[in-house]
Design a protein around this nucleic acid. Structure first.
Length: 157
DNA sequence: GCCAACGTTGGC
DNA sequence: GCCAACGTTGGC
């Protein structure tokens, strides 16, 4: 039974457009440096799960599109690279601390479904996104997923 | 194991 | 750029 997730990204760094431009639309979702997010990624995110790509730290924060998990969690190579911003001196290949998954681009919404719009939906009031601002990998309920997909379709011309 | 200080996230 | 909320660190 596949599940639904929301992954945050900063579009200036790596957004839905960057993912769609990857070869075969497949990119590594890395740089997760929060334990709660890491635990979801490592323990629960599975190949076949669907993911909302959420854009934060930008003019219109919101859900920008959809991706699908194509590779289960594996150690994030950036933690071992001293040149990387994501380098972690306390991590080692036999004791990795941080994980990444690979995702494949599925869809870019005609328009971002803004956070502002999500906040107005009673059906979404229990969303993790609205209750816990800072979690960068979070579960989405099937009912929430379907509701947001409908909002996205309503916005397209 | 507590908690103050500090750092980061992320909306506005 | 500001600031609230939350996570992490480190002294004790």
């Amino acid at each position: 039974m596949s599940k639904y997730w929301l992954f945050k990204s900063e579009p200036d760094v790596y957004g839905i457009d960057d993912l769609s431009k990857e070869r075969q639309g497949i990119g590594r979702w890395d740089g997760i440096r929060n334990y709660q997010a890491r635990n979801f990624l490592r323990d629960q995110v599975q190949v076949g799960d669907e993911v909302f790509v959420y854009h934060s730290q930008c003019k219109v924060p919101g859900v920008a599109g959809i991706a699908r998990v194509v590779k289960n969690a594996y150690p994030d190579p950036a933690q071992f690279d001293p040149e990387s911003d994501y380098f972690d001196p306390k991590a080692s290949p036999d004791q990795p601390r941080w994980y990444a998954v690979d995702v494949q681009f599925v869809d870019k919404f005609a328009q971002v479904v803004p956070l502002k719009a999500l906040k107005q939906e009673t059906a979404l009031e229990d969303m993790v996104l609205l209750k816990q601002g800072r979690l960068s990998v979070q579960p989405v309920k099937a009912s929430e997923w379907q509701h947001i997909v409908k909002l996205a379709q309503r916005q397209s011309p």
